[in-house]
């Protein structure tokens, strides 16, 4: 990747925001920008396309993490949150994509073929939240024992001390 390394400028967040909103109008809302941070809410249908776009066009090479978040019975949905970082073109800028998934349909396309580093994060999210990453090369238990039949980080799974 032959991209020039630039010094940080305040205009970067607005630039990224406009680029993202222009490319994925209607499917992506930028909920806020902070210094070196762009936060966005994303529809689950475009996540793969979006990730390929930010990797190839905006040079976001590094996936910091993919995490799950259970919003509880009241909202009946979970979130998958992606943090993606830039090393060159927008050096130091972190993108945060939040994807809502309803309890009925805990499926989302994998991004482990976009960033190899997302592989274990997705495995972890699957085993702890039961969010299935479609086309993941190896969706197996990683931290918990293989014979677990429940997803311990869901809010429905109560720790004994909390009861």
């Amino acid at each position: 990747m032959d991209l020039q390394i630039r010094e940080y400028q305040d205009s970067w967040e607005a630039e990224i925001k406009s680029k993202l909103e222009a490319k994925f109008a209607g499917k992506l809302t930028v909920t806020g920008t902070q210094t070196r941070k762009v936060l966005a809410k994303v529809d689950k249908s475009i996540i793969k396309e979006l990730c390929l776009y930010v990797r190839d066009e905006l040079s976001f090479e590094h996936c910091i993490s993919v995490m799950g978040n259970d919003l509880g019975d009241a909202e009946q949905k979970m979130e998958v949150i992606y943090h993606i970082e830039n090393y060159t073109l927008y050096k130091g800028v972190i993108l945060e994509f939040t994807v809502d998934l309803s309890y009925d349909e805990l499926h989302i396309e994998t991004v482990s073929d976009v960033w190899g580093g997302a592989n274990w994060h997705e495995r972890e999210t699957w085993e702890l939240y039961g969010i299935v990453f479609d086309n993941h090369p190896r969706l197996e238990r990683l931290l918990t024992p293989d014979n677990y039949e429940f997803f311990p980080f869901r809010k429905s799974y109560k720790l004994r001390e909390a009861q």
């Binding site: 090479e61 910091i64 090393y87 130091g92 960033w115 190899g116 580093g117």
Partner: peptide, 18 residues
């Protein structure tokens, strides 16, 4: 290195200036 998410000294050893 960047794609696999390796960070820190290991990444700086491959030329990632970050």
């Amino acid at each position: 290195c960047a794609n696999l998410g390796i960070t820190g000294p290991a990444a700086r050893g491959t030329g990632i200036d970050f």
